[in-house]
């Protein structure tokens, strides 16, 4: 993977994908919770593997995550990741104010199913807008959930890119509460496979060789 062919216009394009995608997902989340959800300006970075886990508070930080593979014209990986206490709050709200505990390893089937469904709806709306924006045919796999160390989870999404590079392009959008802008509720990570970048840029009329 030759990152030197990627210029600032390309990075802007990726940022816009993050913006539109996460924007739709935030709207979906807001509808589900019946309260306002805000998001930060997406960041697009070419970073080392260790730096990616730093973005979610370090490799050992425990997070609740939903993962899905994108299949179709531009394959890749997508993660919806929440700090554990934020996930408990979110699922509690969704399940009608029930107290939800995720840390002890005793997750009810209902909780996991709810988490999976949240991930499904959010990534679905992210992916639909990504697909509409680029005109590429993209489908999500069935989502999978995991509550574990961030490093253990994220490294899974780095496998494709790690085969050709020591760096990855990560499109990251953070969610916040509209009243508490500093408090990050969760992250959306989009990690296109190495060969997908050229397809995304071509689809939007900005090929990589120029």
């Amino acid at each position: 993977m030759d990152f030197t062919k990627i210029n600032h216009i390309h990075l802007d394009i990726l940022r816009e994908i993050g913006n539109i995608g996460a924007g739709h997902a935030a709207t979906a989340l807001s509808t589900m919770l019946n309260k306002a959800v805000d998001m930060k300006v997406p960041s697009v970075n070419v970073i080392s593997f260790d730096e990616i886990t730093e973005m979610v508070g370090g490799s050992e930080n425990i997070v609740a995550s939903v993962f899905l593979r994108i299949v179709g014209d531009a394959p890749g990986c997508m993660f919806f990741m929440l700090p554990i206490e934020q996930a408990e709050k979110l699922l509690g709200d969704l399940l009608g104010g029930e107290a939800v505990q995720l840390t002890e390893g005793v997750h009810s089937e209902m909780t996991i199913s709810a988490l999976q469904e949240v991930g499904n709806i959010l990534s679905g709306s992210y992916l639909t807008s990504f697909s509409d924006f680029t005109g590429l045919n993209l489908q999500p796999s069935v989502p999978a959930t995991s509550i574990d160390m961030a490093g253990a989870i994220l490294s899974f999404g780095l496998l494709e890119i790690s085969a050709v590079s020591d760096f990855a392009i990560v499109i990251d959008t953070a969610f916040t509460d509209i009243k508490k802008l500093d408090e990050v509720k969760g992250h959306f990570f989009l990690l296109p496979d190495p060969e997908s970048f050229a397809k995304i840029f071509n689809a939007l009329g900005v090929p990589m060789d120029e």
């Binding site: 593997f49 260790d50 370090g58 050992e60 490294s155 899974f156 020591d166």
Partner: peptide
Amino acid sequence: VGIADINLVSPPDTIRTTGLGSCV
């Protein structure tokens, strides 16, 4: 030891890597 990293150790130090998932 970071992801895809490699390192050596001798006492009294110890060596550690965090967040191993599918990695070994």
